[in-house]
Structures are given as structure tokens and as C-alpha cells.
């Protein structure tokens, strides 16, 4: 499987402030990678670096064989931000249309793709409502639909399941697995350990440093624990032990 996202020895920060350091990761085509870490650990900074919003301070980021930052590659990435960045005075359909066009979609493909994307998140009933009247969960779903609408090769989802009820969460995961089988590459961040277990592989970040990396069942075995949550806690303690030894 070809490497779709390749991050090598990445150091990233804002100004003099270093947020993440020595991150290595590779995601191959059709893989789902989960980024786990507490808030403030540097997940969003890593995502911003992969999207090319930030230039790496050190190291390199390659997406689809192209060194980031690269504007054109963004057309092949479907992005869902942590905050619901939606135009509240517009309807869901207008939001989808606008972002679809920004993504560079053909106008004639739009109706079909909007139909598909809203089906995945069960929003087709409310497509012509103003987003201002949406509930928090609905906005989250619309954000996900926007990420899906342009049929991108890569999906980068920042906390996609926050505020989404369990039934819909399952439905979304079904769709993500289906997409990955079709060769789409998915990178998502999460707090939710259930999400972590659904991923093909995991990268745990704490204080800007990768503390564990691998397939979920492999990690559980390696750390000799029962579930992913315990892997994270144990890996975190190991990290603290190392730093206090230094």
C-alpha cells in the first residue's frame, strides 16, 4: 500500500513556542489512523501541519507524494475542523454548495454529492433549514458532510464524533470503514476510546510527543493491559518516568 501521508521528524510550533516535536507517522492508502491525546497535546497542530496550514519548523510532511505546504493538494483533502465553521445565515445546502465549489467541484456533480453526504449524516430532511437553527449535533454532522461532499481521497477529521449520538456514531463509522475499503485514507483525532478501537492504527500524543504508536490490539498486548484507555494511561506514566529521570 502506498504511503499517502508521511510525516518525518516533524517539529512544529508558533513563534518560539514548540508545540510538537519528533513526530513520525505514515498513513497508507485505505488506512484509518486515530490520533489520541488530551487537549493541548498538539493534535490540532499536527493536523494543521499535515494540511499545510503551517510550514514545518523542522522535518517534513508529504501528502500524496507532494511536500506540504501545497495549496493544490488541499482539493483532495476533505477537512472537518474542530470548531463548526459554518455560515449560519445560509442553509445547509448553501453551505455544502459553497464549500463544494471552494473545493473545486464541478457544479453538475454537486446535487448528487450533496445528497450522498447528507445521507451519511442523516441531514437530508433539514437540508434547506438555516444553519443558525441547527442544534450542536446537527452542526457537527453538517461539518462532516462538508468534508465528504467533494469525494476526497483523504479525510482529515478533527474530533468528528463529539456531540453525535451513539446510533449516528455507528452509522458514521460504517461509512468511514466503507470509504477506507474503497481506498480512502482517513486521519482523525479523538478523545473517545471507542473511536480509537475502530481505527486501524493509533498514534498517541502527550505534551507534543508521540508516546505510543501501532495497531490497537498490538498496543494492548505490548503494554499488557486490557483496553486502549489503559494503554494511554500507562504510556503516559512511562513518559513522566522518563522525563523525571532526565
Amino acid at each position: 500500500m502506498a504511503e499517502v501521508i508521511q510525516v518525518t521528524d516533524l517539529v512544529q510550533g508558533y513563534g518560539k513556542n514548540i508545540v510538537i516535536s519528533d513526530i513520525n507517522l505514515s498513513v497508507s492508502s485505505g488506512e484509518i489512523l486515530g490520533l489520541i491525546g488530551p487537549s493541548g497535546s498538539g493534535k490540532t497542530t499536527l493536523i494543521n501541519s499535515i494540511m499545510g496550514m503551517l510550514k514545518p519548523k523542522k522535518g517534513s510532511v508529504t501528502v500524496l507524494g507532494t511536500t506540504m505546504p501545497n495549496r493544490k493538494i488541499l482539493a483532495r483533502i476533505g477537512f472537518m475542523a474542530q470548531a463548526d465553521a459554518l455560515y449560519e445565515t445560509l442553509t445547509a445546502r448553501e453551505n455544502l454548495t459553497f464549500f463544494g465549489q471552494m473545493q473545486g467541484m464541478d457544479t453538475k456533480d454537486l446535487p448528487e454529492q450533496i445528497d450522498y453526504a447528507t445521507n451519511v449524516v442523516s441531514l437530508n430532511e433539514d437540508l434547506d433549514k438555516h444553519v443558525g437553527d441547527y442544534s450542536g449535533g446537527m452542526k457537527r454532522r453538517l461539518s462532516l458532510a462538508i468534508a465528504l461532499v467533494a469525494n476526497p481521497d483523504i479525510l482529515i477529521l478533527d474530533e468528528p464524533t463529539v456531540g453525535i449520538d451513539p446510533e449516528l456514531r455507528q452509522q458514521i463509522w460504517q461509512e468511514l470503514h466503507r470509504l477506507s475499503q474503497k481506498g480512502k485514507t482517513i486521519l482523525l483525532t479523538t478523545h473517545v476510546m471507542d473511536d480509537a478501537e475502530e481505527s486501524d492504527s493509533l498514534l498517541m500524543i502527550r505534551n507534543g510527543i508521540a508516546i505510543a504508536q501501532g495497531r490497537p490490539e498490538q498496543l494492548i498486548k505490548e503494554f499488557g493491559v486490557n483496553n486502549i484507555e489503559e494503554v494511554f494511561v500507562k504510556a503516559g506514566r512511562d513518559q513522566d518516568a522518563h522525563t523525571s529521570n532526565d
Binding site: 488541499l74 482539493a75 475542523a81 470548531a83 459554518l86 471552494m102
Partner: peptide
Amino acid sequence: TTGTLKRLLATPVK
């Protein structure tokens, strides 16, 4: 402030 500018810049728009 709503983040749409950032979201917008996550598309290939110039």
C-alpha cells in the same frame, strides 16, 4: 471568529 476563514483556507482557494 467563527472559524470559517480557517475552514475556507483548508480548501485550495487562493
